[in-house]
Amino acid sequence: MPLVSTGELVSAAVAEGRGVAAFNVITLEHAEAIAAGAEQAGAPAILQISENAVTFHGGRLSAVAAAAAAVARASSARLSLHLDHVVSADLLRAADGEGFSSVMFDASKLPYDENVKATADAVRWGHERGIWIEAELGKVGGKEGEAPLDAHTPGVRTDPSEAAAYVAATGVDALAVAVGSSHAMTERTAALDHTLISALRATVPVPLVLHGSSGVPDAEVRKAVTSGMTKINVGTALNTAFTGAVRTFLDANPQAVDPRKYLVPARTAMAGTVAGFLGLM
């Protein structure tokens, strides 16, 4: 099936009052697992490649993007390709022509005024090329290389009135907000601020995005969607499933050397995780 645009998937989710999940791609097996999980669940999904993943692949976007796009096109599920947490202006511009219909441009570490200017510039560039742009306001901590950040620290969470002003000033198509989750959580213990989510939904005129959803329990994910979150980002949960399956296989088969023997259960475990999250949408 041809790639679907992220904007189309998100708009349909908003219209139908449900969520749409976006899953991080690091290896070919991640992309294959996302497609398989989406087919199993009978649901659309977003394959997203982060700037960190591009760095892992030697800073070269084309190969991992082409692989993910090829997997998506071969799938019967409705899938889109998204470039996530882009800080580099060069990487932002590299998205054009690689199959990406959307980019999350991340200027959240900049002071507010600089964030607005950089993001508005990214939006202008993207919209000239038909690329949907997501941004972040607030502090969703936990990314590799960042200092630890408590999601409950005063000033960390997104302010609704500031978020509305930010969207008006930048023209972004979606906004990632800080409401109690954190990146890279390996245990699902995050408690979301659903009152804040509802206030943001009432104030912000574009779809809301939840980053760090791997650490959010099932019931909290469901409630977040009903409270007003639309795009639900999942990364670490796939890696946890992948690594757990590999570890189990190698513990039971210490003489194994063929990576296909442990990548098959790893891919299957990730697909099950994908299907599970899609069932929450």
Rank of each mutant, 00 (worst) to 15 (best):
R247I: 01
V225W: 03
V221Q: 10
D258R: 06
G235P: 01
S214N: 04
V234E: 02
D258Q: 04
V257C: 07
L196W: 14
A271N: 01
N233P: 10
T226I: 11
L250F: 06
V264G: 00
P265L: 00
H211E: 03
R222K: 13
T240E: 10
A202H: 13
D251P: 00
G228N: 10
Q255E: 14
L263C: 06
D251L: 11
D258K: 02
S213C: 14
A199F: 10
A275G: 04
R267Y: 11
L208S: 07
A252E: 11
T226Y: 12
G212M: 09
I232M: 05
L200A: 00
G272N: 05
L196M: 14
P207H: 06
R201L: 14
G215Y: 06
R222E: 08
A271T: 05
S213P: 06
A202I: 11
S214R: 02
S227C: 13
P205R: 10
V264Q: 10
G244C: 01
G215V: 11
V221D: 10
H211P: 07
G212S: 08
P259L: 01
A219I: 09
V221C: 09
M270H: 00
E220W: 15
R267I: 12
A269Q: 04
A245Y: 06
P265C: 02
V204E: 08
D218I: 09
P265G: 01
A275H: 00
F242G: 01
T203F: 04
V204R: 07
A271L: 03
A219M: 06
V234H: 00
D251I: 09
A224D: 12
V225I: 15
R267M: 13
V274F: 01
D251Q: 12
T195M: 08
P254A: 01
G276I: 07
G276M: 10
M229K: 08
R222Q: 08
V234C: 00
D251T: 15
G228P: 05
L208F: 11
P265T: 02
F242R: 13
D218S: 14
P205Y: 05
S213G: 14
A269M: 00
G212K: 09
F249R: 04
T248M: 05
A266V: 02
V221G: 05
A199T: 15
A224R: 11
S227E: 10
